[in-house]
């Protein structure tokens, strides 16, 4: 099912949460809404789910306008940030809730509900835990119960608000892959909100990057990472360092080093350039480039991380091979190898 929003505006008191947002989600797509906190991503998700209503703009499911429809009629599955499990109900009753509140005529029989709950418990790999209360489950288990509860009513659209936010790193990684599998197996159209770029890039078919109530870019993870459309995206994704630069004929000059611009063409003049840790080469002091002093070298898993201090006092992380020869206190030159620049 397609999900299309157009020109959404939402204001809360004196602050604009959504400032003209349009987005088309394709059937079967797994889309991430990525942005810093306050960028409007959760508001957008809640409006799609019918939990908030926009001041202007439209929401359509499969081409049908659902803007005036209440949450209970939209038939979307919503997984809340802290799961919002009903703590006074057992797991099985939580999962069955959506079925038991259907109007009398459409409500499945008790036996059918029980069967469905058992199916879902198997799907979320919690067979036999139906009799527990939410408080007796681990974080990851609660997450899966919340998902089972949302899936019980056979939604075609699944909305997830920071689904992995409250989990520790190991559980988070396992659940990510598993969720992706469920999404594919059930043929859902899913949208999830996250502030974690690794999660968005790892999991989503496409990523919508949001800032200040606007969508900056909607693209595949590869494109968002390698071809940021705006300065905001280039800055937000990939731990880049920002430099002032000059643009002339598609050539960028940063600290005396001239390089071809890999970002979309920008007008000549002053600009801002972004360089990521692995986009520097280390050279001896005195070479053309950015003069810096090594402060610390950390050998992590596959690469060495070299912490350098620029002449202006800024700290830049440079990613280097494990056998890098730099030592703390040494003067070096940072030579940019790839640069993306945008008009200032």
């Amino acid at each position: 099912m397609t999900v299309a929003v157009a020109n959404l505006v939402k204001r809360f008191r004196d602050h604009t949460a959504l400032d003209g947002v349009s987005l088309d989600v394709r059937p079967g797509e797994f889309l991430a809404l990525l942005g810093p906190s306050g960028s409007g991503k959760t508001t957008l998700l809640r409006i799609i789910g019918g939990l908030d209503f926009p001041d202007a703009g439209t929401v359509a499911f499969a081409g049908r306008d659902v803007g005036a429809m209440a949450a209970r009629d939209r038939k979307v599955g919503f997984v809340f940030q802290n799961y919002a499990l009903f703590r006074h109900m057992r797991v099985a009753d939580n999962i069955a809730f959506g079925l038991t509140v259907k109007p009398r005529g459409q409500r499945p029989t008790g036996a059918a509900i029980k069967r469905r709950v058992d199916e879902l418990l198997a799907l979320v790999q919690l067979p036999g835990l139906g009799g527990r209360f939410p408080a007796q489950l681990s974080g990851g288990q609660r997450q899966r119960v919340a998902l089972a509860r949302a899936l019980a009513v056979d939604p075609q659209v699944l909305l997830l608000d920071e689904p992995f936010g409250a989990l520790d790193a190991k559980v988070r990684n396992d659940l990510r892959r598993w969720l992706r599998g469920v999404h594919e197996a059930m043929g859902l159209t899913s949208i999830f909100v996250t502030h974690d770029q690794d999660e968005a890039l790892d999991l989503a078919d496409r990523v919508a990057v949001m800032s200040d109530g606007r969508i900056e870019q909607v693209d595949t993870p590869d494109a968002v990472y390698n071809r940021p459309a705006t300065a905001f995206v280039a800055d937000f994704i990939g731990n880049a360092t920002r430099f002032d630069c000059r643009l002339a004929d598609g050539v960028i000059e940063v600290a005396g080093v001239r390089l071809a611009n890999t970002a979309p063409a920008a007008a000549d003049g002053r600009g801002v350039a972004f360089i990521r840790p692995h986009e520097f080469a280390l050279a001896s002091a005195g070479e053309p480039g950015l003069a810096a002093t090594v402060r610390r070298v950390a050998h992590t898993a596959a690469r060495a991380s070299v912490e350098c201090v620029l002449a202006d006092g800024r700290v830049v992380d440079v990613s280097a091979p494990l056998d890098v020869a730099a030592a703390a206190g040494e003067a070096v030159t940072l030579v940019p190898t790839t640069v993306r620049a945008y008009p200032a």
Partner: peptide, 10 residues
Amino acid sequence: SDEEAARSLG
């Protein structure tokens, strides 16, 4: 959020 969850479940 509990009420919202209930509403989103119909």
